[in-house]
Computed example of a mutant assay.
Amino acid sequence: MTFSDVVEAIKSLSNEEKLEIQLLLQQYLREERREEIYQNFQAAQVEQQNSELKFSSNIDELKQLIEE
């Protein structure tokens, strides 16, 4: 099934069904974002354990670290 097939199928649904799909999509997007945040957190923990993280309170140094 292609994306356009899905769009056409959604168009034919009732308002109640469309709202349910909207709620489901919002939930799926939240879950995916949470998983992404969790994966980034785990990667940061590994970097911290390997002493790969760099910290600074100097704004110029922070800018340079971001560019690296």
Rank of each mutant, 00 (worst) to 15 (best):
M1H: 07
M1P: 00
M1V: 03
T2M: 00
T2S: 13
F3H: 10
S4C: 07
S4G: 06
S4V: 11
D5H: 10
V6G: 04
V6Q: 13
E8I: 09
I10H: 03
I10R: 11
I10M: 09
I10K: 03
I10L: 02
K11R: 03
S12M: 01
L13G: 01
L13H: 05
N15Y: 04
E16W: 05
E17W: 01
E17H: 00
K18W: 02
L19E: 09
L19W: 05
I21G: 04
I21Y: 06
I21E: 00
I21F: 04
Q22I: 13
L23N: 14
L24C: 13
L25N: 05
L25V: 09
L25S: 03
Q26L: 07
Y28V: 12
L29M: 15
R30Q: 13
E31F: 11
E31W: 07
E31T: 09
R33G: 02
R34I: 13
R34N: 02
R34P: 02
I37D: 05
Y38H: 07
Y38P: 08
Q39F: 04
F41N: 08
Q42D: 07
Q42M: 12
Q42T: 05
Q45P: 03
V46H: 07
V46E: 14
V46N: 08
E47D: 14
Q48L: 15
Q49D: 10
N50H: 15
N50E: 09
N50M: 11
S51R: 06
S51M: 00
E52I: 05
E52D: 11
L53P: 03
L53F: 04
F55P: 00
F55Y: 14
F55E: 10
F55R: 09
S57N: 08
I59R: 15
D60R: 06
D60V: 10
E61V: 02
E61A: 06
E61P: 04
K63V: 06
K63L: 14
L65A: 11
E67A: 03
E67C: 00
E68Q: 03
E68C: 01
